[in-house]
Write a protein that binds this DNA or RNA. Structure first.
Lengths: 166, 166
DNA sequence: AGCAATCATTGGTATCTACCAACTACCAGC
DNA sequence: GCTGGTAGTTGGTAGATACCAATGATTGCT
């Protein structure tokens, strides 16, 4: 039953056409791996990099907010930030308005690192989405952003034109 | 320096607008988690499910081909298939043309399970991509498929109209 | 002042994942 | 019938990840 022995030459490995979600999951892993290989020599992990980017673009924010943005558990975020702080890439200080909170901020040193990191990340993006032209890439980004927004995260417009020259 | 204390209400958690790749990674994790929660009661893990779907749509294939399709390391694939075989969802048999190879095939029992699984997966997809209309979802799928194809995997057209009625 | 809720932190656990080295069975070519 | 390469298997390791329960500091409410 159901015996369709195509046994095609190992090249056309096929499949996963169906569920967009599975495709998404698979590509997410793939791109993370790519990121990791490029980021390793720089010394930051993909997650840490995402955190730095979030902090640079979003400005100082509480750990709670950052965790929500990155979809990382609070307890895991703590150790992640510990590492970043030990490396001098971020700064934690208490929020004067609510001293329970820590305001996490990217440091000047972190800003420098993020420039290097971003160059590498952009390179990966270019390789990874090489088959898509400008418009397609933009529309892919738009679609993903909307999904992210609806799912849980809120992508903000971030009008804060606080450009620390990169 | 770089002190833009927006400290917005925790709702608009912001960011990650920049790199499409990071967005992809984050959403991939999110959707995998969703899948996992729905699949757990059924008894299959996301990876196993992906394998079953690949086998159903791609027909019998060698482990090598399957591993390439799913982007899973050969040694990890072995244990994954062991579990599926122990559960009676797939069958391994030697390829008569090359007895080194195992032809992996979905079993009749596996085909039944996959129906249940697919209902759940489709439900997740519907929730996850709820904000996109039909056309947008299709174009997202198309874009992702093309990226997947160029990256490494080959998504085949799969003309094999071998419908095991679901 | 007392109390419940919140934020960050700690510690622990279970699972997933990638990766690597070695081994068996098998194929193809000489 | 050797030899070299390939497919699958085994076992082990390191790291990533999710998740959960408990604690201390701090807040807001009454």
């Amino acid at each position: 039953m159901a015996t369709n022995l195509s046994l095609e030459p190992p090249t056309s490995s096929s499949v996963l056409t169906q569920h967009t979600g599975f495709l998404l999951a698979r590509l997410g892993r793939a791109v993370t791996r790519q990121y990791r290989s490029v980021l390793t020599p720089i010394g930051t992990k993909p997650r840490e990099t995402a955190a730095l980017l979030a902090l640079r673009d979003g400005g100082a924010m509480s750990q709670q907010a950052l965790g929500a943005a990155l979809d990382v558990d609070a307890s895991n975020l703590v150790v992640l930030l510990n590492d970043l702080e030990a490396a001098g890439l971020i700064v934690r200080r208490r929020d004067p308005e609510d001293r329970r909170r820590h305001l996490v901020e990217i440091s000047t040193r972190g800003s420098k690192v993020i420039c290097e990191v971003e160059r590498a990340s952009t390179q990966i993006d270019d390789e990874f989405f090489a088959d898509l032209d400008e418009d397609e890439r933009a529309s892919l980004h738009d679609l993903l952003a909307r999904v992210a927004q609806s799912t849980d995260v809120c992508v903000k417009d971030a009008g804060s034109g606080d450009d620390d020259g990169c």
